[in-house]
Amino acid sequence: MVRLNARQAGIAAVVVMLPAMAGCGYNTIPTQQERAEAAWADVQSQYQRRADLIPNLVATVQGAAIAERTTLTQVIEARARATSIQVSPDTLSDPAAFEQFQAAQGQLTSALSRLLVSVEAYPQLQANQNFVQLQAQLEGTENRIAIARRDYNEAVRAYNTTLRTFPSVIWAKTAHSGSQPMQLFNATTEAQTAPSVTFNLGPAQPGGAAPTVTPGSAPTAQ
């Protein structure tokens, strides 16, 4: 009888301990880590989507014989740099690697927006259906990147908070001591300043009517 009761007590202890551990936040840290890493994967796939669109865009702009050579080159170079830097989930807590990734993608963002603003001066490109579609896709991708970054920041903020708040901080210091806070996206200086564009419409420019077109101020044009 006594032996049976000891076994009963043991089972009872296990049954009680499991939900109690879960209740005390033992599972919170891995759960939120997974969530943050999934959000990161989404950020990367959206950036990849943008990188995949760029060769098409460059080809279309070049095909229209646009004399924006430096802007195009900047986009191509920035894309090459951005795609060469990848951050794996394991290195998300490394500030240097994250900073590099963000800087490279930020440079690509600003190079792209400079290109898109400067080609607004070419009506032959605005009439190109392929270009118009690409532009819509790029805008959508930029929007998705912004949302993916925001979702990632939210997931990471929740994760970082559990690493520092009671009761999950107990697990963070003991069983999950390998869990490090992850890095957050912050608004870059490129994002805060609108791209400045100088229209190099020199004598070599064939589109004579181009300089009179002010971007975005002709609602009846469509």
């Binding site: 118009v132 819509a136 959508g140």
Partner: peptide, 14 residues
């Protein structure tokens, strides 16, 4: 797709 949505907005709605 984004391109389709943009096309609908530009041609049907605006």
């Amino acid at each position: 797709t984004d391109a389709f949505a943009s096309h609908v907005i530009q041609t049907q709605m605006l």
